[in-house]
Design a protein around this nucleic acid. Structure first.
Lengths: 361, 361
DNA sequence: CCGGTTTATGACAGCGCTGTCATCCGGCAC
DNA sequence: GTGCCGGATGACAGCGCTGTCATAAACCGG
């Protein structure tokens, strides 16, 4: 510690456009440096301390207007791009949120992720995408690798997670939002709705309309299984049993819907109404009915789930159960953001559902 | 520098299960530490140097079998989760790849992103999701915030980017893959196909089938515009002009497809064949045709674009142009991975397209 | 049993940023 | 003039990891 240079040169305060003073700009390029412009270089160019540049970027209210302007100008001129890896390491806030969904090929999750991304983006957070597949076989592994990125929060699909995953999430001590389902005991927060109630409501609706020979065209998905249970229980309570079921691999699509209906129709007890575990399946069922010359809902009533964008525009228009998918993304984002600011948060949000009657039932 | 403690205690080499020796485990918790287990703590527990733990994780081939086992056991026991922010900062490799797409609500991009995510995931990379919207209005801003995460590569949709974006990407000196289009002058690498050729091919096909009153149900999207140009040029060469066009906002969907066809059919010159800028629009056109009692392809031929999952299963089955969406994701990932390892890479990959004739034409 | 090579492990510094506390300065009440 | 206060700015020490080079141990042929 003898001949160390002052780390920066003081700017003349008050002076409007301070000279970007430079002389001892020893640009020694260490073998490890990345080559890109750093905060320190900007600081040197602007004649202020690095921390002042940091503040100009992250907490401009702490910096005098003059300094702020000058620093911003230098930033623009130098093409400086902050390094959030470094920032995150130092501040313990990565400004990253991990979203783990089975798939985004199915727009039911894609839209929620979009809304999450949009809302978080407004607040400076980016979304790290994790696809766990069907069934959520890769969730455990995914969670481990995702947590090593030190996300500030995690968005999960469903409420069933391995003990190991739960423990890891708890250990991470970050906000966790489980979605698309309801439980009184979430890991942390929850935005969803009751699949059982939904199943019950649809059974009541279809039976109320006079349908008695009920069928299900159903994906082998965990949450769908709960809907089915609710449906069957409520039907049984109304004296309707013998419900025919075609189980198909998740995620459902048009093709599987056609196959599912074919199976039921060619079975021992063809239904007069089918409830499908997704709108995509329902669209398939509708197509198969058309291909067989059945009138909908005359010969066969069809009910979907999700109220995807296309549902009102099929021919005939598809009756379905509306889920506010965007709300799931948006409310999850808002719950996270509230927690980041230590604001009070509703731990469990039930977004409900709504039976939408159109032409197919 | 006088009473500094040795930073770790040497393990007895050769001994099979070395004692997890501990005594001076001064766990002084600095006010800035995160509280979670660090590499250094694991190293102390295992009686090795931090760097050895790092190697056990990232380059196990450099560590003796015994040490490796022991360290792994300690890692498992301690619940250590590596901090990739720190790792990325130190190594200049974030193992993050940014993917910028207009939307994932439309499965045309979702599938490519899924494949990208899967393939990169295998290699330890995670995908940072950026949604630029239609038109790509937010791309510039998105790119800036995304680059501050120091991704190791960027996946882009399309080949049109602002000069500022191009410059930023170049400055970042990382692999960039542009997709869904073709140009002789990509920023870096490219995986796509020629929209113009595609448009021409479809015009040739439809006219070859005898259709003469052609119509387009078209999203106002940049790449679609190129397809249209190709289509119209090739049609004109064959003496077919007066092509009716219904332009709709992007991204297309079933509803817009219905509206589009309605507009053409109620117009001065109803077409006998329509080409749609996406399968989703084509499905809408098909639905509207059915709703109007038109026979397909008798009264109206319909051609889609994309060959989405449902296309073979509509009724009648949809003729369309197949794009290997998964290949776009997979090949992009592979191009990036190859570049990470300095392997030779094909700069421009044309994945082509294929006209798929089904029942609707 | 020797010098030279290979293999396993470690010390150290530093990646680029921010939390924390210190410093400086002008303004203000008395 | 004095002491105090608050606002603006800065110095410093990390955050948790890895690149780099040094060192020690193991190996090897003659």
């Amino acid at each position: 510690m003898s001949d160390s240079l002052p780390t920066h040169t003081k700017r003349k305060p008050g002076k409007k456009a301070p000279q970007p003073d430079q002389k001892k700009a020893a640009p020694r390029t260490s073998s490890r440096s990345s080559g890109s412009v750093t905060l320190e270089e900007v600081a040197r160019m602007a004649g202020v301390a690095p921390i002042t540049v940091s503040r100009a970027i992250n907490r401009p209210e702490l910096v005098t207007k003059d300094t702020l302007e000058h620093v911003r100008e230098v930033i623009a001129r130098s093409g400086y791009v902050p390094n959030l890896l470094a920032g995150g390491l130092a501040s313990k806030r990565s400004r990253l949120v991990a979203a783990i969904v089975p798939t985004i090929g199915n727009s039911i999750f894609a839209e929620a992720v979009e809304c999450l991304t949009d809302r978080l983006g407004e607040a400076g957070y980016k979304v790290l995408l994790g696809l766990s597949g069907y069934p959520a076989s890769r969730e455990d592994e995914l969670l481990a690798t995702v947590l090593s990125r030190r996300p500030d929060a995690v968005f999960l699909t469903g409420i069933t997670h391995s003990p190991q995953s739960r423990q890891r999430l708890l250990a991470a001590k970050i906000p966790v939002v489980e979605t698309w389902d309801l439980t009184p005991t979430p890991i942390d927060m929850l935005v969803g709705f009751s699949h059982e109630k939904l199943g019950r409501a649809v059974a009541a609706y279809l039976i109320g309309k006079g349908y008695r020979r009920l069928g299900l065209v159903w994906a082998s998905d965990e949450r769908a299984a709960v809907r089915r249970r609710g449906f069957e229980e409520a039907a049984a309570e109304r004296g309707v049993t013998d419900i025919q079921v075609a189980i198909l691999p998740a995620p459902g699509n048009l093709k599987l819907g056609r196959e599912g209906l074919a199976k039921l129709l060619d079975g021992p007890q063809p239904p007069d109404a089918v409830f499908c575990s997704s709108d995509a399946l329902a669209q398939g069922v509708l197509t198969e009915a058309q291909a067989r010359g059945l009138s909908v809902p005359g010969d066969l009533a069809i009910m979907g789930f999700g109220d995807l964008e296309f549902a009102p525009y099929t021919y005939p228009a598809l009756s379905t159960v509306r889920i506010d998918r965007q709300a799931i993304g948006r409310l999850s984002a808002e719950a996270m953001l509230a927690r980041f600011e230590d604001k009070p948060v509703e731990k469990i949000v039930d977004i409900g559902f709504e039976i939408v009657e159109r032409e197919s039932t």
